[in-house]
């Protein structure tokens, strides 16, 4: 059986059932870019932002972690996140990608490519409520 570290969420395991904003159910490995875009269009609170990977470094805390620096949205705000190296991000037009795709596939059985500088990931921000 697959052993998932406690800080790696269960919904990334292959076969997990994901509900889109219109109620449709899909497996996590079958999600497409359009699924996220259409779900965000339906959402009253959330919108999709583009987050471009600017830098990927090993963590000072633990070799199991990486620090990924993103440039977020049209304002290019700099945001760094510390994640397990197998943590998957969804890259526009490409799909699931992580710092260590071999580990992602090993632990989660989730098909995954290598996350690289310049990749544009899907992220969420709050819609402007006016």
């Amino acid at each position: 059986s697959t052993v998932v570290p406690p800080s790696l969420p269960p919904y990334f395991i292959k076969g997990s059932i994901i509900q889109l904003a219109d109620g449709e159910l899909k497996r996590v490995e079958d999600l497409k870019t359009e699924d996220f875009i259409q779900s965000a269009e339906i959402s009253s609170e959330l919108k999709i932002d583009s987050s471009t990977v600017e830098r990927i470094e090993g963590s000072h805390t633990s070799p199991n972690f990486a620090v990924v620096q993103f440039s977020v949205g049209e304002h290019r705000a700099q945001v760094s996140v510390e994640v397990l190296v197998e943590y998957p991000f969804f890259v526009f037009g490409q799909g699931w990608s992580s710092c260590c795709p071999d580990r992602t596939t090993q632990l989660l059985e989730l098909p995954c490519t290598k996350l690289s500088v310049g990749d544009v990931c899907i992220s969420l921000t709050l819609k402007n409520l006016r």
Binding site: Y11, I17, Q19, L20, F70, A77, L124
Partner: peptide, 19 residues
């Protein structure tokens, strides 16, 4: 079988707006 909402899969990155 648990069902997870789509937005739980996406990191929430709120940019700080400086304008």
């Amino acid at each position: 079988v648990p069902v997870f909402p789509w937005h739980s899969l996406v990191p929430f990155l709120a940019p700080t707006q400086s304008d």
